[in-house]
Design a protein around this nucleic acid. Structure first.
Lengths: 223, 223
DNA sequence: CAGACTTCGGTGATATTGTCACCAAGCACG
DNA sequence: CGTGCTTGGTGACAATATCACCGAAGTCTG
């Protein structure tokens, strides 16, 4: 797997930290590894540590009272869970949960160390506030999309984001509906329409992108 | 208006600050007053200061590319704009704007002072992170509502929140539609239905609540 | 005051999306 | 092989959004 020595260097926002701060971060953190499909945090299960993701992705999603689910965002390698953890610590009874989508490698930083770092290093403060800001602006964008964007545009966009350069997206209609916070039937019908137009091909549990250009054009009708 | 001496005491999260920190906050901040209807911050107009609201409310809303508007949240007396400001500083080109809904009195704290405070005081750090956390969890809830809640439930809820103990809400259908991120016609039809049931009475530019209990019952179908 | 203009709200037709109830094909596993 | 589970398809219908209007109520101005 990845070399965990000097993991700090792999965080764009952390590599410019003062040397003794880096040292503190490295010496007081532990590397943890988690397989995919594990609930890392959730209602009634707030972790003691702030996580800095070295490898893998964590999916943060929410279940509403009505039983509907929606994916809020993902945390990728090079990002941290600071805010989610902070949220969980501040408000015990909220409904978001974080699930490892792949095997995950992360640096766990205890709360006290985190607080020390914020106090001592301006660079670290900038990193933390930038992370919060990014998250909040992303949530603003998401609200805009959920409220105003047509479902075909959102689906095209999501397929392109999930395919990660590949042409095949391994997912089910059900999972796609949770990504967008809509119903499975809606996804099925939209995918049928995409297929009818020759933009994709479907198989059980996968979607193959045939015409990326057209999907991109539809998705860009938004942004 | 309000007594601005020792305004720090009026912030639940700040009153427990260390005395010298309070002093720093008081001495390095300026009290500003703004009439209602002014855009305090927005695209291409990020303020230099962090605002701590002493009196009045600020409405934060967003305009999408499609021309649709939606109210994201409000900042009330005793709360701060920390995050919005932080967001604006980090990402210049985003579309949210803050508008004073009433005459507003606020303490303006320069960025450097804010950074100093975060570095020096654990209590202040706790205040700031709690504010961020609250905002993020509120945005999670909002996403859930926009994605999954029926419009009649959301409208009933919004009317109850806007009436502020009074029985008359002075607003237009247009403004209510922006509150919920929907179309004016939808609001008109829902209000007609509420009126037909005898829950409200309408006049040009105002809604009078006649049957609070029924509205509450409808609104609580969610939470 | 008359006329012009704007804001506010109403309405019908139609498109899009969500909900519900059900079915059938593919797959896992004893 | 049968049984149950997952995945996806379908039709009917409900809720919401969009579009194109319209008229009534206020505002402004000469």
């Amino acid at each position: 797997m990845t070399d965990t020595q000097e993991w700090v260097e792999r965080f764009p926002g952390l590599s410019r930290l003062e040397p003794h701060i880096k040292q503190l971060l490295l010496s007081r953190s532990a590397i943890i590894e988690v397989p995919g499909g594990i609930t890392l945090f959730g209602p009634g299960n707030s972790p003691e540590n702030m996580l800095f993701l070295l490898d893998g992705t964590v999916r943060v999603q929410q279940v509403s009272d009505t039983g509907h689910e929606i994916v809020l965002y993902r945390i990728h390698a090079g990002e941290s869970c600071v805010l989610t953890t902070a949220c969980l610590l501040a408000y015990e009874n909220y409904a978001a949960e974080g699930i490892s989508e792949t095997a995950v490698q992360a640096a766990a930083v205890p709360r006290e160390v985190f607080d020390d770092l914020v106090a001592q290093s301006k660079s670290f403060r900038d990193f933390v506030f930038a992370a919060f800001s990014k998250r909040i602006t992303d949530l603003f964008l998401m609200i805009d999309e959920v409220a105003f964007q047509r479902i075909d545009v959102r689906l095209a966009d999501k397929l392109l984001k999930l395919c990660d350069g590949q042409d095949v997206v391994a997912t089910t209609h059900q999972k796609l509906s949770v990504e967008l916070g809509t119903a499975r039937e809606v996804i099925s019908r939209q995918l049928q329409e995409f297929q009818r137009r020759g933009w994709i091909e479907q198989a059980r549990g996968s979607v193959t992108i045939l015409d990326r250009a057209h999907l991109e054009r539809l998705a860009d009708h938004s942004a």
